[in-house]
């Protein structure tokens, strides 16, 4: 009898161990997950991570985003950038390493896109105040005096002293087109390097960056929002260890006298860019690059934008035109994109 009970016991133990194996294997990552949504960097961010240190990672990622907001925000009067914008024309202003790096790289993207992106529209952006309760249509007389041809060439950087100097009083730095991308890259770096996270997704106001593949080894399915119905997608891309960033005319805007005024400004006019596109999505490995290019290509218009992206290595894009045509670059024929990093 005791022997029989022993057999039954062994059987049950074996069954229990096997069932743990069946359900646990491949699902262990999924079973340890953490996710949080918060308002940060003037946008809504969701961080979802998998693995043993998921919860710690989520906390660290938001901490990083808040730290960067206090450096890079052009609107927050407490931020380092806000302070620098007040003094850099009067005198050479010493800045933190982070602010120096973001300025240097942003200016580089301005030059590379031949001014389609210009990160020196701070004063004009402040007039429009998109995304705030003070958003309004500025008069032409307010904008014209602040228009500086290739304003980004009027910023002087000194690597040795780590200082910034404006050569024109009408420019101020605004990293609306690069800061979120930079932050997404930094959040990912902290998570992978300091917390050993191998699986996760960060959505920083529509800037999406993924860490590795999904918990089941599959790529992450990322929808490109339909500009006419935000609950639908026009296309789904499958990305692994990569980023997808969209610039659209439907995110921060207002309509006045039947005209839609949106936050993507054409540096040449100081008014909302109006070159036939209503949404551009850029897929790349680096989120700051994708962020900069999504804004720059929106300003360029379809033909120029397609040619620009096609000439780049490991960068793809999806454009939606005013007549709702969806155009993808050649490398997205199978809707997959994989980062190598």
């Amino acid at each position: 009898m005791a022997k029989r009970m022993g057999y039954i016991g062994a059987f049950l133990a074996l069954a229990a161990v096997c069932s743990l194996w069946f359900t646990g294997c491949g699902r262990s990552l999924q079973s340890q997950s953490a996710s949080r949504t918060e308002l940060v960097m003037s946008t809504v961010a969701t961080v979802t991570l998998y693995g043993e240190r998921a919860q710690e990672g989520v906390d660290a990622a938001f901490e990083k985003a808040k730290e960067l907001e206090m450096i890079l925000s052009a609107q927050n009067e407490e931020s380092e950038l806000y302070q620098v914008n007040q003094t850099a024309y009067e005198r050479e202003t010493e800045v933190s390493e982070t602010l120096f790096t973001v300025t240097r790289r942003s200016l580089q993207y301005c030059r590379e896109t031949d001014g389609a992106l210009d990160c020196t529209l701070g004063k004009i952006n402040a007039l429009w105040a998109f995304g705030t309760e003070n958003a309004r249509l500025p008069a032409q007389e307010e904008i014209t005096p602040l228009l500086v041809d290739r304003g980004y060439e009027q910023v002087q950087l000194n690597e040795e002293t780590r200082t910034i100097r404006f050569l024109n009083p009408n420019i101020q730095l605004d990293f609306g087109a690069t800061a979120k991308g930079f932050a997404a890259d930094e959040m990912k770096r902290v998570l992978t390097e300091e917390y050993g996270i191998t699986c996760g997704i960060i959505n920083l106001g529509g800037n999406i960056i993924t860490i590795g593949a999904k918990y089941d080894g599959q790529p992450w399915g990322i929808g490109v929002t339909d500009p006419d119905d935000h609950t639908r997608v026009v296309s789904t891309e499958y990305i692994t260890n990569a980023t997808a960033v969209t610039s659209g005319n439907y995110e921060r805007y207002f309509i006045q006298d039947g005209v839609r005024y949106h936050h993507i400004l054409d540096p040449k006019t100081g008014y909302s860019a109006n070159n036939g596109l209503i949404s551009t999505t850029v897929l790349a490995e680096n989120s700051m690059l994708a962020d900069a290019l999504s804004t720059a290509t929106y300003v360029m218009g379809l033909d120029k934008a397609v040619a620009y992206i096609e000439a780049m290595e490991n960068v793809e894009a999806i454009f939606i035109t005013e007549d709702r045509t969806v155009v993808k670059t050649a490398g997205l024929a199978d809707d997959t994109f994989e980062g190598t990093a």
Binding site: Q30, L39, I208, G221, I222, V233, T236, A244
Partner: peptide, 22 residues
């Protein structure tokens, strides 16, 4: 207005999408 409405589902594995860009 600083408002966020987020839905958390018991199981997101069945959702076809992991995120949406905008």
């Amino acid at each position: 207005n600083g408002i966020v409405i987020q839905i958390e589902t018991g199981n997101t594995a069945n959702s076809a999408l992991d995120g949406m860009t905008r």
